[in-house]
Nucleic acid binder design. Sequence first.
DNA 1: TATTGTTATACTCTATAACTATA
DNA 2: TATAGTTATAGAGTATAACAATA
Lengths: 157, 157
Amino acid sequence: MIPVERQELDQRETTPLDTSVDELNANFIESIARLKRRLRAERAGDEFNDLHRSVLTLLVSEGPRTLSQLSDHEHVKPPSMSETVNVLEQSGLVERTSDPQDGRKVILVATPHGVHFVAESRRRRHEWLNQRLHELTGEERRTLAAAAAIISRITDS
Amino acid sequence: MIPVERQELDQRETTPLDTSVDELNANFIESIARLKRRLRAERAGDEFNDLHRSVLTLLVSEGPRTLSQLSDHEHVKPPSMSETVNVLEQSGLVERTSDPQDGRKVILVATPHGVHFVAESRRRRHEWLNQRLHELTGEERRTLAAAAAIISRITDS
DNA sequence: TATTGTTATACTCTATAACTATA
DNA sequence: TATAGTTATAGAGTATAACAATA
């Protein structure tokens, strides 16, 4: 039924490769959307969300960043990042400092407590996914790691 | 700095494999969260979201389902699925029918318009991601396809 | 005047609680 | 009673618009 519809509708040139990209697009988005919804249920009640953790991890591993740098990197708008940073700041995990060269800028720095938190929390978080990952074969894990690298690259392009 | 912290904190036994799973967990979640945020920005203004499309695709390709079956499959609660189905129904893409065996159940069926929509929209949606996928090598696409399959499997376990 | 960030407000997506109808 | 689904309401996460401070 679907192939017939596709045939009717495919007015422009398509190669089998196009079709496979379309399929990949749909399958891939649907699979990660379902995973995100499942993870949401698993981590209900957590104090920090993925964005909080991603920002903190970046500050710990890569060093201080301005608010705009953070919002660009994470693909959110500055007001969203400002609120995210408020939470981290109120928890004592990051500090706002000012740029001596440019008074408009706010530079975010991880506190020692923030560094400690990242090291400590990597293991505990997303326990459900951790368990699932442990059940995979080494090759399957390598596939996911390779996929994560590809996703990061295209997201930032 | 981080390795020292880890060493202090790692009270329980961990193997190198554990660490790599932790890293994979963090990297993977962060990469797909950033991708999701980027996709949100790219598809602003769209009439349907990922859940609408995923549900419609399932009904078209796999046949009629009850509301509970849909909410289980997509990992949302029944009220969320009910609202999602309302939108698809109001757009004429699915129909609610009743189960002749059990009057409590609602069976969702894709309309001909819904079938047509799925075939027609696969190509157009997420144009930004489609473009990125076209720029990948065949092997990179195979990696993502394999990752999507693994994700789907573990999400539904 | 342009840029960086914040505050106020609103929208999207999903959840929980309360309810209706049927088994 | 227990189950399937809906309605009403709330919360998390993100956005846009308006504003303040600095360049």
